[in-house]
Design a protein around this nucleic acid. Structure first.
Lengths: 251, 251
DNA sequence: AAAAGCATTTGATCCAGATCAAGCGATCGA
DNA sequence: TCGATCGCTTGATCTGGATCAAATGCTTTT
């Protein structure tokens, strides 16, 4: 009986239908019986720890992954042995969709803090989407969303200055945390200044200086990894590129 | 009889099975009978001309589009009334996939030269993909490919200098033209220097100077819109970031 | 064919952010 | 507990590419 209880707890812990992320994740908007079918193919691995890899660039593509708790960064090698951080992934976010095309991963995924991850074998998911139109649509939406996010990133890197980039980063994080029921103004960063800079196309020093500046301007409080956003509207103004902006947009 | 002949010619002109792009486009790798079914939902519009829009940012999403001949640019508004060019699209390339998520277009698509475009109503395509697994897989692949391309762009904008960016642009164009059976070393640009600069996150003046420099270095010949690439290996070296590179990659 | 209007090129100057250089605080292994 | 190492901050300097400024060359209009 005690064993029964353990199994039951385990089931409660893992099942999609009981997961607080179901409104953000793959099952979003699915009928309960379809969630059930999806649930059957999801593999739950034991928690991963800081530095562990979900996959590495070049690995054969087999599964997509969803962050359940914790956070993950993805990055691709750039010329000269450097790397480009491609994203920081929070609970409910899907990783690995870019690998479908070449049937191999183009980037690596590394866990930033102790994290629980759901693994979804893609071949089985694909079978499932053939028979569940709403799940197929959800997959199209998720893939499309990823394209939209990449587009936002291109816009950020192509047109925004350092200040606007960091403001956009902080605000984006804030909004994503809020969607997950966490505080949009008080949180801890799981990535280093170095990784933030790499992600935003900035040097570490620039990121550090901007944190200091934003703090001096009363926009936020920074203590090591602990961030408090004190003035979201002002940050939004910065991102918009309004304010006493300097650079003229081209074309 | 002459009417019969016209219809017949028209069919030959448009049907996917007779289209020289079928190996690059949606029908890639499909069974002939499935191409037939796909063919039924494709709408062929009359040729569009320079400056015409396929769709505008904010438009309700109804269809995806495939360039049949000619070329198209996509762009999104950036802050301050400027715009970010997101891509230049050649025959066989699909436009509009980023709109599935929000059910509205996030960018505008404008024809750069007289072009023939195939329109594919997405709702009908989605029905079709439910019953044709290989077409569903193809859709996943195409969406994933788009993510990969955006990632390449992020890497370009985040880590490459002006020289590397332009070399990557020229080489990318060269390779895409070659896949379409055109010369990889001799072609005409359908976009302006301004648009190239905008796309690459560079000022027009920088693009112009680089064209001059590349020409002086014997890498290419430039005459207005006419480009001849004289030394592809050297361009590849430039892109790799090797050579007597200056900037150290961060992290 | 003249005029207007762009697109492109070229030169001069400027500046945001990179790079170089310390110094400092926090975490960690022995 | 003590170095050692790493991540972060701060200051000084440098530079790639933006911006400003013109001249020139195509294209299109009338």
């Amino acid at each position: 009986m005690s064993q029964q209880k353990v199994v039951s707890l385990d089931t409660i812990r893992v099942a999609c239908r009981n997961c607080t992320l179901s409104s953000l994740c793959l099952p979003m908007g699915l009928a309960p019986e379809d969630v059930e079918r999806l649930d059957e193919i999801v593999k739950r691995t034991r928690p991963l720890h800081r530095g562990d890899f979900l996959f590495r660039e070049g690995d054969r593509f087999r599964s997509i992954y969803v962050v359940k708790t914790g956070s993950v960064k993805t990055f691709a090698p750039s010329a000269e042995g450097g790397e480009q951080v491609l994203g920081f992934h929070l609970p409910g976010e899907i990783i690995g969709l870019d690998a479908i095309d070449k049937d191999a991963h183009n980037c690596s995924a590394k866990v930033l803090e102790t994290s629980a991850i759901c693994e979804i074998p893609f071949a089985r998911l694909e079978e499932l989407t053939s028979s569940i139109p709403s799940l197929q649509h959800q997959m199209y939406r998720l893939l499309s969303k990823e394209i939209g996010q990449d587009t936002d990133m291109v816009l950020l890197l192509g047109k925004k200055n350092a200040e606007e980039r960091l403001a956009a980063f902080l605000l984006g994080l804030s909004q994503r945390l809020q969607k997950r029921g966490l505080s949009p103004t008080d949180f801890y960063l799981s990535m280093s200044r170095h990784e933030i800079g790499n992600y935003l196309g900035l040097a570490v020093e620039t990121v550090s200086r901007l944190f200091t500046r934003f703090q001096d301007d009363g926009l936020m409080r920074v203590d090591r990894k602990h961030i408090e956003l004190l003035n979201l509207p002002a940050l939004e103004t910065l991102v918009g590129g309004a304010g006493p902006s300097r650079r003229q947009q081209q074309q």
